[in-house]
């Protein structure tokens, strides 16, 4: 089977962007190798290294597949993908840097388990994040409290401070206990702020995000710093793109990758300037050096 070279897919054409809870099949991958960030497999993908991506073949044997070269061009053999029954990890236009984190979502009752893989050298772009389908909003504060637990994968005890309550109170509310107006207001506020995040992010990622930074978003919610929390959500909603994709293209930077250009730069470093004024007669450094006097002593 001949190799097929796929040019980097423009960012705007990517339907599912960043670390989302999207999943894809090998057919999706064939159509667009950058459309998913999640992995279904029987074991954690700890065999992902460098710029190769592993896969499980039909016999559950791990194979590694070199994918993207540093220019973001993906070279694949179509037959390579057909045996994949579970997709590994992909980002739009990514060059698969070193894997930074592997999250086990723990949300499957058996195999396949689901993992989310975060890579290095990704950053938020200025674009907008895709929106996934979300179920209709529950109308009650209790329903929204349940959604908050689902969206964040926090335990009731962990969620409690975010809505200004105690663990037992959360259980009471979930068991049809009355929710006071003040508490209801906080639940609705937190729900409204986190909802855009829940549309695009895996619960495990939201949980990780809540604990990231100082102060972290969970602290902000506990302190009812809604404006700052909302700003944090907006930032988190910016899609992840490879760092290289947002660095302004620079001919020099490209040139610097080639031995010829490096040699030219080194030769320039060893070349005299166009104009070099003559040294000033009698110049001495303003700081005393002591060097000349020392030389004869040692």
């Amino acid at each position: 089977m001949p190799e097929t070279t796929l040019a980097r897919t423009p960012y705007r054409d990517i339907a599912l962007q960043g670390l989302t809870r999207a999943t894809a099949t090998s057919e999706d991958l064939l159509r667009n190798p950058w459309t998913s960030t999640t992995y279904h497999g029987a074991s954690p993908p700890d065999w992902i290294t460098g710029s190769t991506v592993g896969r499980l073949d039909a016999t559950q044997q791990v194979e590694t597949i070199p994918v993207f070269n540093p220019r973001g061009v993906c070279t694949v053999t179509p037959a390579t993908w057909t045996a994949i029954d579970h997709l590994l990890v992909a980002h739009p236009g990514t060059t698969f840097q070193f894997v930074r984190d592997v999250f086990d979502t723990n949300d499957a009752l058996g195999d396949p388990r689901r993992f989310v893989v975060a890579e290095e050298d990704l950053e938020r772009s200025l674009g907008t994040s895709p929106v996934l389908d979300v179920p209709p909003k529950p109308s009650s504060a209790r329903g929204r409290l349940g959604e908050l637990l689902e969206w964040t994968r926090l335990s009731p005890a962990e969620l409690a401070p975010l809505v200004g309550a105690r663990r037992r109170t959360i259980y009471n509310w979930l068991a049809d206990g009355a929710i006071g107006r003040s508490a209801e207001g906080r639940i609705l506020q937190l729900h409204a702020i986190l909802e855009p995040l829940a549309r695009t992010h895996d619960p495990l990622l939201i949980r990780a995000w809540l604990g990231r930074g100082d102060p972290n978003p969970a602290d902000l919610a506990s302190a009812e710093q809604w404006v700052l929390l909302n700003a944090g959500v907006r930032q988190e909603l910016q899609p992840l793109v490879p760092v290289e994709a947002v660095i302004h293209p620079s001919p020099y930077e490209d040139d610097a990758q080639t031995p010829t250009a490096r040699r030219a730069a080194l030769l320039a470093f060893a070349a005299p300037p166009a104009r070099a004024p003559q040294p000033r007669a009698g110049w001495r450094p303003r700081e005393a050096t002591g060097i000349e006097a020392d030389a004869s002593d040692d």
């Binding site: 470093f269 060893a270 070349a271 005299p272 300037p273 070099a276 004024p277 003559q278 040294p279 000033r280 110049w283 450094p285 050096t289 060097i291």
Partner: peptide, 10 residues
């Protein structure tokens, strides 16, 4: 080479 007038002895 680029900065020949510098105090290179020091």
């Amino acid at each position: 080479a680029m900065w020949p007038q510098g105090p290179w002895d020091l």
